[in-house]
Amino acid sequence: MTAARELGSGMLEWDLGAYPERAAFSADSAEMAFALGDGRIAVIDLDGLEARFRAPHEGGSCMSLAAHPKGGWLSGGDDGRLVYTSPAGECTVVHEVPGHWLEVMAVSQDGGTLAVAAGRTVLVFDLGLGSMTEYGPHQGNVSGLAFSPAGGILAATHVGGVSLWDLDEPSEPIFLELRGLNLAPAFSPDGNFLTCGHQENAIHVVDLASRKVFQLGGLPAKPGQLGWSLDGRYLLHTGTRAVVCWPVPECFSQNPEPVAFAVQEEARMTALAANTRIPFAAAGFGDGTVLLAELKRFTAFPLGLDPVSPVSCLCWSGAGLHLACGMEDGRAALLDLGKMLSEG
């Protein structure tokens, strides 16, 4: 158990003692959890305020994490195991794919469907029914997964393109060819566009109605995480030295102009989480700065964290009022947005 430190204005911080790889909130937004590089997960009660540790991937690394809609957590590890950790802390292996890292995971917006990549195959779990379906094999190892907002389509990125699976009629996927290594798919909030990052410092935006693909090239670094503003007007990505918002669909024209603000001289953005309830995004940088970016007036202000170690993960609660932050040196922080705003 690790106690919290008060950082003031709605911020709390914990030492978790290992690299936080992913963060997640429980369905009722009463708990958050971090997947840790030493095979444990840290579960933190938002009002109990003490971190409890579980060890679903003992001897390995915990690489992906999601909340189970009925309570507890599902995590993937480099031991090839998908493990359910109950609220009481009991760990059960749900599925095992020896030799594969279960690193890439996505959950549908309602929390009821979970997809996890195991090499070229994707395993999709209906968490209500407790059933599993296999999708694939894909052309290459699956590097990213995303559910459409309505939950009916699953996008899987890999070398050579993106595969779109209709989950209601799983026969053959729609395949969009994009040479090179694609990653980090993200659907726009209205489900009309799909974006994904590309190894070679580019982003592709797919208009799903026409299946036309647009490329934003020449970015300063590999866009490893993508996000959309709540209204779907802007696309954001990591790898930049500022918060950069590309207007969609205006960015399809020649020489598109993004809105860029909150320039960071020293560090690139390493983590990004767009809020799904309010027009905010959280942006974490390589020097440890976490910015709360407001996407109506395009202003940003830093959270009161010690900028000592790169930000490794960010996640908003379902209700959009809490932000979980993980730092590479093993610290975790929680922002209570309501408390921060009421305290000014």
Partner: peptide
């Protein structure tokens, strides 16, 4: 790209 990053981080 994936595995070297993963091993080092974790």
């Amino acid at each position: 790209i994936r595995m070297v990053g993963g091993l080092i981080r974790r």
